[in-house]
């Protein structure tokens, strides 16, 4: 990452794809008796798709919440487009970052259109205007949800609902989207579709995509960058080259073999390792 390596303030920089969309500098977060994140540092540029890897409890969700400002880091700084995340007004933060949480309530009688329109909240003062409605229409079209737009969300399948949640986050027109295990509970086809959508959004508009993900192979297939977390520390971060057999074994406590399949790197578990958590790659 040669660009903007030394400029953490980002003052006066033009918005270019070369610039960092997101920078974390020594971010730590602790509960009274537990250090969840310890000195997390990495940087992402516009248009990059990044996967956060690590076993359950490694701190992936906490990391996303710290970036969003839902949790306040006990130390370190999160720069969103060059501005300290905590100094931004909540509405401004919401215009820059969208979030797809792991759990969400789909039991409301909202039509798909209304559910996605909610993403316009950071822009709406009194009522949704023409442009808000058009953004929703466009997002629904890109995600292939147009035919469902007047259906109620409590009548949708899991895959459709997940797409609606992502559509809502995209309707925020964020520069960065954070996703907490977006492919959880989805079938194979929907997993691939979801990642395809996210990558094409990144390529299309320079959206920076950061997702916590359990499926290493899906991550390898679709991501440009990787952050490997272990016990709240960044073990490695960088391009696909950092996801090595050793790195995965260290992070998950499982011996794996990396193989090349038609030019795509794949990660296969060999046998449970002795160190740490053999079931670490469950779910």
């Amino acid at each position: 990452m040669p660009v903007a390596e030394s400029t953490l303030t980002g003052e006066g920089l033009e918005i270019t794809w070369e610039r960092n969309a997101l920078e974390l500098e020594a971010v730590s977060f602790s509960y009274p008796s537990w250090d969840v994140l310890r000195g997390v540092t990495f940087r992402l540029r516009y248009g990059e798709v990044c996967s956060v890897l690590g076993n359950n409890g490694a701190g992936k969700t906490t990391l996303l919440k710290c970036i969003l400002g839902i949790l306040k880091p006990s130390d370190g700084v999160v720069l969103v487009e060059g501005d300290c995340a905590l100094s931004l007004r909540p509405t401004e933060r919401a215009r820059r970052m969208g979030y797809v949480p792991q759990r969400h309530d789909g039991h409301h009688r909202l039509t798909v259109f209304e559910a996605v329109l909610l993403g316009r909240k950071p822009y709406v003062n009194w009522s949704a205007g023409r442009r808000d409605l058009e953004v929703v229409e466009s997002v629904l079209g890109r995600l292939g949800l147009s035919h469902l737009s007047l259906r109620y969300t409590d009548e949708l399948s899991g895959g459709e609902l997940q797409k609606v949640i992502i559509a809502r986050a995209l309707a925020q027109e964020p520069r960065i989207i954070l996703l907490d295990e977006p492919t959880n509970n989805l079938d194979l086809r929907n997993q691939v579709e979801m990642m395809d959508i996210l990558r094409s959004e990144a390529r299309r508009s320079g959206l920076c995509v950061l997702s916590a993900i359990h499926d290493i192979n899906l991550a390898l297939r679709y991501s440009d960058k990787f952050v490997i977390l272990k016990d709240g520390r960044v073990q490695r971060w960088g391009g696909p080259e950092v996801v090595t057999e050793e790195a995965v074994e260290e992070a998950y406590g499982v011996r794996v073999k990396m193989v090349d399949l038609d030019g795509v790197r794949c990660c296969l578990p060999v046998a449970p390792g002795t160190s740490g958590n053999p079931g670490g790659k469950s779910q």
């Binding site: 969003l68 007004r89 919401a94 949480p101 759990r103 309530d105 909610l118 909240k121 950071p122 925020q172």
Partner: peptide
Amino acid sequence: WDLNALAAGDETAKSLGVR
């Protein structure tokens, strides 16, 4: 709008700028 956001869950609401 804030109530709508809250119905989608606390985390979603906060990510939409609702306190």
